[in-house]
Design a protein around this nucleic acid. Structure first.
Lengths: 147, 147
DNA sequence: GATGAAACCTAGCCGGT
DNA sequence: ACCGGCTAGGTTTCATC
């Protein structure tokens, strides 16, 4: 799909507030409400917009401890996707180039919970060791910029 | 704020689809539409719900290269927040305990752009060295689970 | 704090340009 | 591909319990 400047304006506006009316969106992009509606529909159909969702404060849910864990594995971890999905504390999992095999982002309530999560990660098939980086303070976490 | 089980159901439903009606939300949580509306309003006012937004496919925006960068610094980087915010490729920045000082999440169009971003990170005040971990494949990226 | 109804507003579809 | 009007449905408010 070709994304032009109007689409980018619409995407940026929706990232800030997905609840605003198509009339307001049209004004931002220099379009009528109907046209804005049509473009957003196409962006959704093309998969550029995956879904509309809410941004929740993790600390309010009791998920104030953030850590990244490097998993070293002795086998290809391609089949470990589901095992990692089943650990609720794991928000992200990536196969990486470099010293370890998989990088995992973890949020827990307490450091004790973090310990329990590390045990769960150790139990995943193929994992031989973990290296944990605890976040002391987050400067910011934002969505991919619509350049 | 006290978050009970109904609130959690509402939050989980809104994470999946923030566009659904309050009537549907009420049905999920076992509430009337008006009550569902009232609870969501309070969750927003309390900051549990930060905002409603869209989830955009990074690759569709030409941000298909994902990497994590560890920044070693020779000084306290507390004042570097704005400098990192100004680099559009940087999606997250965290002060960490461990080998380096700051962990940064970066999305770029190409590996050449990644190089340019690394140069920009080197130029940030206090940064003495960088260590880059390139993501080969993302298993998943999801939002903090509402447990 | 929850409910149900009533007024207002918006989304979503239409044909026309 | 954009625009304007129409209609059903949803949001939002209010009185009530």
């Amino acid at each position: 799909m070709t994304i032009d400047d109007m689409d980018r304006k619409l995407l940026a506006a929706l990232q800030e507030d997905a609840g605003q009316s198509y009339a307001a969106l049209g004004e931002i992009a220099g379009l009528s409400a109907g046209s804005a509606h049509e473009r957003v529909r196409k962006l959704k159909a093309a998969g550029v917009i995956r879904r509309t969702t809410i941004e929740v404060d993790p600390a309010a849910l009791g998920r104030g401890v953030l850590a990244y864990v490097l998993l070293e594995a002795n086998a290809w971890m391609g089949d470990s996707r589901e095992a990692l999905l089943d650990i609720p504390a794991v928000d992200e999992a990536h196969i990486i180039a470099g010293p370890a095999s998989v990088l995992v982002k973890v949020r827990t309530t307490t450091t004790e919970d973090l310990q329990a999560t590390l045990r769960a990660l150790h139990a995943v098939d193929g994992v031989t060791s973990t290296q944990t980086v605890v976040v002391l303070e987050s400067f910011f976490e934002r969505q991919p910029a619509v350049v």
